[in-house]
Nucleic acid binder design. Sequence first.
DNA 1: CAGCATCCGCTTTGATACTG
DNA 2: CAGTATCAAAGCGGATGCTG
Lengths: 227, 227
Amino acid sequence: MRSYDEYCAIAKSLDLIGDRWTLLIVRELSLRAPCRYTDLRNGLPGIATNLLASRLRDLERAGVVMREDAPPPIATTVFRLTPRGADLQPILDGLIRWGLPLMFEQHPQDAIRSHWMLRALELMLCDRDPAGPPVSIELDTGDQPIVINAREGRLSTRIGRAEQPTVTVTGPMKPTLALILGFASTDTAAKEGLAIKGETDVLQRFALNPHALGATPPPTPADQAPT
Amino acid sequence: MRSYDEYCAIAKSLDLIGDRWTLLIVRELSLRAPCRYTDLRNGLPGIATNLLASRLRDLERAGVVMREDAPPPIATTVFRLTPRGADLQPILDGLIRWGLPLMFEQHPQDAIRSHWMLRALELMLCDRDPAGPPVSIELDTGDQPIVINAREGRLSTRIGRAEQPTVTVTGPMKPTLALILGFASTDTAAKEGLAIKGETDVLQRFALNPHALGATPPPTPADQAPT
DNA sequence: CAGCATCCGCTTTGATACTG
DNA sequence: CAGTATCAAAGCGGATGCTG
């Protein structure tokens, strides 16, 4: 990208990370480093391969990304965030929070990768009964299963299958999100194609973290077409 | 911008605010709304006027910006952030914090606008003697003078002249920044072309807010060219 | 197959000129 | 003042080819 040539911290940040695809590459590395070139391509559907190579070079020069030659058994290059790159997390988190309302507009052409949801779930979800027994929720809703573990008020998420899920939700991503954030009842969820197995009531325990969003309610279609 | 077509909160945010110039327009409105079209152009040196018009339309559709017809005496359209647009502040702040180290690379071609520094100074600066007497610092270093007021541990900044500045710093922006953040002594500052008038010692009272940055030290040229 | 580089058609951007 | 119109140049997306 050409520089904005402004003596302004925001502009200078955007000079380095404001290019198309750049922050999504950082997202990928923040969610599952170390990452091979091919992993990155899979996590960035639609990116042109020359552009990915070019961006990785730029990010390396900017001190955001580093490449390593993985040890013999793997014998390939892997990419990671540098500490300076990891410092971008607050910006990614800000984008996740601001973008949550937009997740309720799912377009048919939208690609889905389960790992994109991991950090979002950690940020947005809150356990309203931190003293309750530990539970693990499995979401089978994307290309890979997601596990949410709640234990002593702390939430963690990962890709994989739960050994003994307290409850398992199967179906499309959007209603699943609405369900666990408490925006939809289990009845509504079922109508939208979700199958819930196990202790359904456990889902009531979770809700949207009240600190997660700004004070402004999500814009509705009505806001955009006032009469 | 074309959509990334990803069901991911970060990607969906970037679909709306990831275009070139877009976040800088939001910056302008966050720093000095309401803003006329011409004010925006002045705060965004280098933007093509058709692009500004196009971005403003996009931001309006996205619910981030609103336009108003100013009342008769002014008789022009002005632009503001909507509440939803104001919710972008944490993202702008993140970019400011991450970008601070980059402010110590000032290029000759970099445009300067004093108001770009206002939020950065508020975020980065900390009063180490909150119980001390109120002081006001004037910085004459850009296209307009900046006033920093410190009172009871709270810092505020504005464009304008102080009525009775405790101290006034005149000269280029970069050494001024280094001086008030405590990265440079008054001697060093003088060598870089700064003139300091008034109670010089007051400047010692301020320093970089330790909470302002991530834990990672700024990258140095040495990091980029290892031997 | 992993990790690119090259080529090509298209879209976006930037610079300038022009208008109500 | 607040934009629209025009056009050259740069960037992007997609396909393909090359190298270990």
